[in-house]
């Protein structure tokens, strides 16, 4: 066990996967000698050689399309999109081919490709560098979509993703690349499809993922001052969705708030709210609320603080969960 940043944990996972399986290839823009613009592939080209870790021509559709072809011929490509919005040129390859290959071929062709995408804002990046694009992918059947909230999960989920027979969109919360945590490579993994309770609490469930996990935990701390005991669920896998863990939590607390950076309208949170409401309706004391980015294009650096969900906005939402209508025996004080 050692303390690693999330970027370090991702780097370690790639190295261990390259070491464990000759079929694993890492490629994309600037992932070779430079080690990627976020240094996630640092040192890998030197260690594994340029036949396994290499720079490609600058074309995202080309990167994903050739990864599909490589996977069809037995390789396990792990490709990098440099930033969220720069994956869009690959959208057709991802949605029409990567996601559908198994289904189209009645299971005869498998494309175990992992697409790593640094996503989200909070780093003062200029336009096209801060998108939260998860809903485009979660709406596409056939893709697995995962996102780590901690360094240990960065390691575990990336190893799981590379082992997965299904294509995986691996969303890396870039604002958390430098946050540190204990990482034990080779520890028992939680399970690729599983959400986890990051912090137990009795009064309300905060459902978060990726960059918002840390924000949710911070909110839970702040909420103790208001007398709320907040449970934080980290989804980890956005698709498939772990109904069991999420609903078990919401049934315990009777209240829930979903948090994400992406715009709310048509966003991933809407799916979470729907699923929770459908399954836990009789346990709920209040509607499930969402705290999300506004329904606007990601703002310029000087305005992003107004857009991003933060502790105060989440506390406000918790405050709106109809505490006065308290049902005896459930939730706070039960």
């Amino acid at each position: 066990m050692s303390a690693l940043s999330m970027s370090g944990a991702l780097n370690r996972a790639l190295a261990d996967a390259l070491e464990a399986d000759d079929r694993v290839l890492v490629f994309g823009e600037d992932v070779g000698p430079l080690g990627g613009v976020f240094r996630i592939t640092d040192g890998l080209a030197a260690r594994f050689g340029d036949r396994r870790v290499f720079d490609t021509p600058l074309a995202e559709s080309g990167i994903v399309g050739t990864a599909i072809g490589m996977a069809m011929n037995g390789m396990r490509p792990v490709v990098e999109m440099q930033f969220d919005a720069f994956a869009y040129p690959a959208f057709e390859q991802i949605t029409s081919h990567l996601a559908k290959m198994r289904n189209r071929t009645r299971g005869k062709v498998e494309v175990p490709v992992v697409i790593r995408i640094p996503y989200g804002g909070g780093i003062g990046g200029v336009e096209h560098h801060c998108d939260s694009s998860e809903a485009y992918y979660t709406h596409t059947s056939g893709l697995r979509v995962v996102t780590p909230g901690t360094p240990q999960d960065a390691y575990d989920l990336l190893r799981d993703a590379i082992d997965s027979p299904d294509p995986v969109i691996f969303l890396e919360p870039k604002r958390r690349y430098w946050s540190k945590g204990e990482v034990t490579p080779g520890a028992d993994r939680v399970g690729f499809d599983r959400a986890v309770v990051r912090r137990p609490g009795r009064d309300v469930t905060l459902i978060a993922y990726g960059p918002m996990v840390a924000t949710a935990l911070e909110t839970a701390e702040a909420a103790t001052e208001e007398g709320w005991d907040v449970e934080v669920v980290d989804l980890r896998s956005l698709s498939p969705f772990d109904d069991e863990t999420v609903c078990a939590s919401v049934r315990r607390t009777g209240r829930a708030v979903v948090v994400h950076e992406a715009s709310g309208f048509g966003g991933y949170g809407a799916e979470v709210v729907a699923r929770v409401t459908e399954r836990c309706f009789h346990h709920l004391h209040a509607p499930v609320l969402r705290v999300t980015g506004f329904d606007i294009p990601y703002p310029p650096p000087k305005l992003e603080e107004h857009h991003l969900p933060g502790v105060d906005r989440i506390l406000d939402a918790i405050g709106r969960l109809q505490w006065d209508d308290e049902v005896v025996g459930a939730g706070r004080g039960a």
């Binding site: 309208f265 506004f294 329904d295 294009p297 703002p299 305005l303």
Partner: peptide
């Protein structure tokens, strides 16, 4: 930069949900 600008240029006419936000 006036934070109100966040909502000012998304559509030709402000939508009701953006006005709320």
């Amino acid at each position: 930069v006036d934070p109100a600008e966040l909502f000012a240029h998304v559509y030709a006419q402000p939508t009701s949900h953006l006005q709320e936000q």
